[in-house]
Design a binder for these strands. Structure first.
Length: 425
RNA sequence: GCCCGGGUGGUGUAGCCAGGUUAGCAUAGGGGCCUGUCGAGCCCCAGACCCGGGUUCAAAUCCCGGCCCGGGCGCCA
């Protein structure tokens, strides 16, 4: 706004209310709602012609004077336009209504995501995600972590046993990574001591749940010269805390819009360990066989337990049975591993812990898993040339956002989500 | 992948179990009236039973198959 109160505004037409001799056009952009008020006799007469055939969701730009004491209630600003430019006319049959007078179901919304995205509530999710990430990245940078990019196309599908997408790689077969983990380890072995990779992962599992995506992003951290898996846990909880803190600093309005009450979590996060977990679950009426992995219901039960005992939405689970974890995790003893999951509101957010860095032990664990060391040689051979103790974790971004904002489906936390059925738009 | 539930105008729903009116309602759309609307209001108009087969005098409704979608479990982040 300049001294005379002249302003230039733009946006998508949200509402047009034509009362005959007065016409209200409400436009919306990613910051605010502005009402353009046109009066016969007062406003330039060509404005009525220009806006005669205007439709909802058309894109306009207007210049005029801002009304000092606006009479419009449901908008942020009111402008008396002197000129209006129609930049794009929207077709009048909309596949969903961004004004949300009639809510659309999730599949309809995702089929028409760019229209869905015009809703301030939907934009809020991604604004919050951006703040979350920037808070986390800043914390990592401040604590000496270096951002790196590890490959998305990998030549061997050996990371965790999850289903992988095959891609044609010239005349060979290759795979999309499920997790950047092994290359993160090789990077630390390469001497970049503290790194993170913020990138995409793919899973070809036929999962039909509100918490799975075929394509998701993770904040994946790896660090050398740790004394134990506890070091990775301390980094992880501070990282989460820093992200949430940033959200609270920058996105008060968006949190309010989504009706979310968020607090900076207290650290350290509670830690539950195997085998004590079996006792906790048994007390809650859930029988899990000793030495076995727990199931989805157990995750929720453990959350209830932690909520009651520690009043925390976050908690670590440590010392998983080695038999349910991949070959690369470091054992604590013959049965249990220094393998850590972080759970948030009963959902697994990340896996991590300390990795086995001793070459001979690594090879023997591969054999113990019944795998052929030859197939993993591309990875293991570098452990023979000096590998520091190291560990890390990978936090699923969409899962963190989903739980933080109490979204009922993870697809809401992905701009253009991919699942077994959906690759478009 | 297994189990359960569901597909009705552009969107969201009622009707289905107990087969039979012109398939109801809301909102969006088109037309009209209105100089302060703001979930604008009032009047008028137009708009739909996922596909295929079967049962029946008659199918949105019952049966079978297909396709699509949602949820639970498993797997995982």
């Amino acid at each position: 706004m300049d001294k005379e109160g002249r302003v230039k505004v733009h946006g998508w037409v949200s509402e047009i209310r034509d009362l005959g001799k007065i016409r209200f056009i409400v436009i919306r952009n990613w910051r605010e709602k502005v009402q353009l008020t046109l009066k016969r006799g007062t406003s330039p007469s060509n404005l009525f012609e220009i806006t005669e055939k205007l439709t909802q969701e058309s894109v306009v730009e207007a210049e005029g004077t801002e009304v000092k004491e606006k009479k419009a209630k449901a908008v942020d600003r009111e402008v008396l336009p002197e000129s209006i430019k129609v930049l794009s006319i929207s077709s009048s049959k909309l596949p969903l209504d961004p004004n949300w007078k009639v809510p659309a179901l999730l599949p309809t919304r995702l089929d028409n995501r760019p229209l869905d995205l015009r809703r301030p509530e939907v934009q809020a999710i991604f604004k919050i995600e951006a703040s979350l990430i920037s808070g986390m990245e800043e914390w990592l940078r401040d604590h000496g972590f270096l951002r790196v990019f590890t490959p998305a196309i990998i030549g061997a599908a050996s990371e965790s046993g999850a289903e992988v997408f095959k891609v044609r790689y010239f005349d060979r077969e290759a795979y999309l990574r499920q997790d950047p983990q092994l290359h993160r380890q090789l990077t630390v072995i390469g001497g970049l001591e503290k790194i993170y990779d913020l990138g995409v992962n793919w899973r070809a599992e036929l999962s039909h749940t509100p918490r799975h995506l075929s394509e998701f992003r993770s904040m994946a951290v790896e660090m050398g010269f740790i004394s134990s898996e506890l070091d990775t846990m301390r980094v992880e909880e501070e990282l989460i805390k820093a992200g949430i803190k940033r959200v609270l600093e920058e996105r008060e309005r968006e949190l309010e819009l989504l009706n979310v009450e968020l607090e900076v979590p207290k650290t350290p996060f509670p830690e539950l360990r195997f085998p004590k977990i079996y006792d906790i679950l048994e007390e809650m009426g859930k029988e899990i066989e000793y030495g076995e992995e727990y199931d989805t219901e157990s995750e929720r039960l453990l959350w209830n337990y932690v909520k009651e005992e520690y009043n925390s939405d976050f908690f670590f689970v440590n010392r998983f049975p080695f038999k349910v974890k991949p070959f690369y995790v470091m054992k604590e003893d013959d049965t249990w591993a220094r393998s850590v999951d972080l759970l948030y509101k009963g959902l697994e957010l990340s896996s991590g812990g300390q990795r086995e860095h001793r070459y001979e032990v690594l090879i023997s664990q591969i054999l113990e898993k019944g795998m052929n060391p030859k197939n993993l040689e591309w990875f293991t051979k570098f452990f023979a040339y000096g590998a520091p103790p190291h560990g890390g974790f990978a936090i699923g971004i969409e899962r963190l956002v989903m739980k933080m904002l109490n979204l009922s489906n993870i697809k809401e936390a992905a701009l253009f989500p991919r699942d077994p059925e959906r690759v478009l738009p």
